[in-house]
């Protein structure tokens, strides 16, 4: 008997603290699988966010640095400039990357920092209690948009990946989803590509991952995957938006 599927070595054995059905766990696993496959566990430095994934460093078995809300791309810049040959990645939610840390991610991209940036979009603030995110869809209810997000009050949801793709410094920009097996397999390929681009020192590589938040969406895990597919993907289309010729 040969193990065809088991916990990747780069993941620690600590059980995740996420809510049942939250897809952060899937994304964590995919990152660990990619790091194992590229054999870079001893080279990699992760930058943890603020938000539900604030304790993500507990789930990985390699170097990690946790800083302030939204500043992960700046922290990653500091690390990468000191260790240009190491592999540095950031993991940020929609509040972290698309609200409080907008300046930091825009300028890390503009400088084409040779890092891998993972942007987890679940259209809501999870940890603080289901408030409206910059990526909350029009009409979507949250604890700070109880009647649904209105464009008159809160404007429009941000397509961060398309926005960053307009910058010369962003060499790779893609959006994937983890709501079903087919898309999870695709997501892993894309995340792996974003790390390979860093290995080749091409420039700033961004992957947006559409993720679920059953708890704050008020849905069962299964319903949440359906909601993502039916509501998020039409507004946040999947695919590779920008691919460098080096890959």
């Amino acid at each position: 008997m040969r193990k065809v599927f088991s916990k990747p070595a780069s993941l620690s054995d600590k059980p995740f603290h996420y809510c049942p059905g939250c897809t952060h766990g899937i994304i964590h696993r995919l990152i660990a699988e990619v790091i194992d496959e590229l054999n870079i566990k001893e080279e990699v430095i992760g930058i943890a966010p603020i938000g539900c994934a604030v304790f993500m460093y507990d789930y990985f078995d390699f170097d990690f640095l946790g800083g302030a809300h939204g500043r992960a791309p700046a922290v990653a810049t500091g690390v990468k400039r000191v260790h240009p040959d190491k592999m540095v990645f950031t993991y940020q939610g929609d509040g972290d990357a698309a609200a409080i840390g907008t300046a930091e991610i825009v300028h890390a991209a503009a400088r084409s920092e040779k890092i891998t940036s993972l942007f987890i979009n679940n259209a809501i603030y999870g940890m603080t209690g289901g408030q409206m995110a910059p990526t909350t869809l029009l009409g979507q209810e949250s604890t700070t948009s109880p009647e649904g997000r209105s464009k008159e009050m809160a404007g429009y949801p941000i397509r961060l990946t398309e926005m960053l793709a307009t910058l010369e410094g962003t060499v790779y920009a893609a959006r994937v989803s983890v709501h079903d097996v087919k898309h999870i397999i695709q997501a892993k390929k894309v995340i792996k590509r974003a790390f390979e681009i860093q290995q080749k020192k091409v420039g700033f590589a961004l992957v947006e991952v559409l993720s679920t938040c059953p708890t704050n969406w008020g849905l069962t895990p299964i319903e949440a995957t359906k909601w993502l597919e039916q509501n998020m993907i039409p507004y946040y289309p999947l695919g590779e938006i920008k691919v460098p010729k080096e890959v």
Binding site: R2, K3, F5, K7, F16, D180
Partner: peptide, 21 residues
């Protein structure tokens, strides 16, 4: 069948799959 789709979908790395070589 050992397709591992359950394991791929699991957010909590609960499942291990083994197959005969």
């Amino acid at each position: 069948t050992g397709c591992a789709m359950c394991a791929l979908m699991c957010p909590d790395v609960v499942i291990e799959v083994e197959r005969e070589e």
